[in-house]
Measured scan of single mutants.
Amino acid sequence: MTEYKLVVVGAGGVGKSALTIQLIQNHFVDEYDPTIEDSYRKQVVIDGETCLLDILDTAGQEEYSAMRDQYMRTGEGFLCVFAINNTKSFEDIHHYREQIKRVKDSEDVPMVLVGNKCDLPSRTVDTKQAQDLARSYGIPFIETSAKTRQGVDDAFYTLVREIRKHKEKMSKDGKKKKKKSKTKCVIM
């Protein structure tokens, strides 16, 4: 069974824990209790493949930012979460993405942009803004509501699919490099 290491990042209060708990335990946590770091595991079937999701729910508070490099190193894919009623959390996505790329030393890291709290009427981040940002990053965008469960499975499952595509691409690139290195030079 394939294991996928997913990391949920975003500013404090955007609903990272609520999304994760909704996926794992099928219930909505409405009281806000700032996370330092929590880890969850769940076995699911995605596109006919049974897999184990190892999900790291991270601290959004700035005082825990020193811990970010460590979990970013171990993560295979990242859910970059903002709240649709919090423009600052949307603007912060850029910083999370840049930090992930720096730590992973790669421009090509599996990510999904997630606009959470889409059940709320007080939207300050337009869907088109988020779609445009995701398009500019070359990553999928999904709106979710941890409260109603809308888009929750889709967000995590899409990230797994992005990781699969990335692994497939990397193995193809690896095979191309191996083929090239088999060419021999004969000096007579």
Rank of each mutant, 00 (worst) to 15 (best):
T2K: 15
T2D: 15
T2C: 12
T2E: 15
T2Q: 12
T2S: 14
E3T: 12
E3H: 15
E3L: 08
Y4T: 12
Y4V: 10
K5L: 03
K5W: 01
K5R: 10
K5F: 03
K5A: 04
K5Q: 06
K5E: 06
L6K: 01
L6Q: 02
L6F: 09
L6I: 15
L6H: 02
L6P: 03
L6N: 01
L6D: 01
V7Y: 06
V7I: 14
V7A: 10
V8D: 02
V8A: 05
V8K: 02
V9E: 02
V9P: 02
V9Y: 06
V9Q: 04
V9I: 13
G10R: 00
G10E: 00
G10A: 07
A11E: 10
A11T: 08
A11P: 10
A11I: 15
A11K: 05
A11Q: 09
G12K: 06
G12A: 12
G13W: 08
G13E: 13
G13I: 11
G13T: 11
G13M: 13
G13N: 11
V14K: 07
V14C: 12
V14S: 12
V14R: 05
V14F: 08
V14L: 11
V14M: 11
V14N: 10
G15S: 00
G15K: 00
G15V: 00
G15W: 00
G15C: 01
G15E: 00
G15L: 00
K16Y: 00
K16M: 03
K16T: 06
K16G: 05
K16R: 03
K16H: 02
S17K: 01
S17R: 01
S17E: 00
S17P: 00
S17Q: 00
S17A: 01
S17I: 02
S17D: 00
A18R: 05
A18D: 07
A18Y: 01
A18S: 10
L19H: 15
L19R: 00
L19K: 12
L19Y: 07
T20L: 07
T20M: 05
T20A: 08
I21L: 09
I21E: 15
I21T: 15
I21Q: 14
Q22C: 04
Q22T: 07
Q22W: 10
L23W: 14
L23G: 15
L23H: 15
L23P: 02
L23E: 15
L23M: 15
L23R: 15
I24P: 02
I24F: 08
Q25F: 04
Q25T: 07
Q25R: 08
Q25M: 07
Q25I: 04
N26R: 10
N26G: 12
H27K: 13
H27D: 10
H27P: 03
H27Y: 13
H27A: 13
H27S: 11
F28W: 10
F28R: 04
F28A: 04
F28S: 04
F28Q: 04
F28D: 02
F28E: 03
F28I: 05
F28C: 06
F28V: 05
F28G: 03
V29F: 10
V29Y: 11
V29M: 12
V29I: 12
D30K: 13
D30N: 14
D30H: 11
E31A: 14
E31Q: 13
Y32P: 04
Y32S: 04
Y32F: 04
Y32G: 03
Y32M: 04
Y32Q: 04
D33M: 04
D33S: 07
D33F: 03
D33R: 04
D33Y: 04
P34Y: 04
P34N: 04
P34L: 04
P34V: 05
T35W: 00
T35D: 02
T35F: 00
I36E: 00
I36F: 03
I36G: 01
I36M: 04
I36R: 01
E37H: 03
E37C: 05
E37N: 04
E37A: 06
E37L: 06
E37P: 02
D38T: 01
D38G: 02
D38S: 01
D38I: 01
S39Q: 09
S39T: 03
S39H: 08
S39W: 05
S39E: 08
S39M: 15
Y40N: 01
Y40K: 01
Y40D: 00
Y40E: 02
Y40H: 02
Y40T: 01
R41H: 08
R41E: 06
R41G: 07
K42I: 09
K42S: 10
K42D: 08
K42G: 12
K42A: 08
Q43R: 14
Q43Y: 07
Q43M: 10
Q43L: 07
Q43V: 09
Q43S: 12
V44I: 11
V44W: 07
V44Q: 14
V44D: 13
V44E: 13
V45M: 12
V45A: 13
I46Y: 09
I46S: 11
I46Q: 11
I46L: 10
I46V: 12
I46T: 08
I46A: 11
D47A: 09
D47K: 10
D47M: 06
D47W: 05
D47T: 07
G48K: 12
G48T: 09
E49P: 08
E49W: 05
E49F: 06
E49V: 10
T50Y: 08
T50C: 09
C51V: 14
C51Y: 13
C51R: 09
C51T: 09
L52Q: 15
L52G: 14
L52S: 15
L52M: 15
L52T: 15
L52P: 11
L52R: 15
L53T: 14
L53C: 12
D54P: 14
D54Y: 08
D54K: 11
D54A: 07
D54T: 15
D54W: 06
D54N: 14
D54R: 12
D54G: 09
I55C: 14
I55L: 09
L56R: 06
L56S: 04
L56G: 05
L56V: 09
D57M: 01
D57S: 02
D57L: 02
D57V: 02
D57G: 01
D57F: 02
D57W: 00
T58Y: 02
T58N: 02
T58C: 06
T58A: 06
A59G: 11
A59C: 06
A59K: 02
G60N: 02
G60S: 07
G60T: 01
G60L: 01
G60Q: 02
Q61D: 15
Q61H: 13
Q61T: 14
Q61M: 11
E62Y: 08
E62V: 07
E62N: 09
E62A: 08
E62R: 07
E63K: 09
E63S: 08
E63P: 09
E63T: 09
E63M: 06
E63W: 04
E63V: 06
Y64N: 06
Y64F: 11
Y64T: 06
Y64V: 05
Y64R: 05
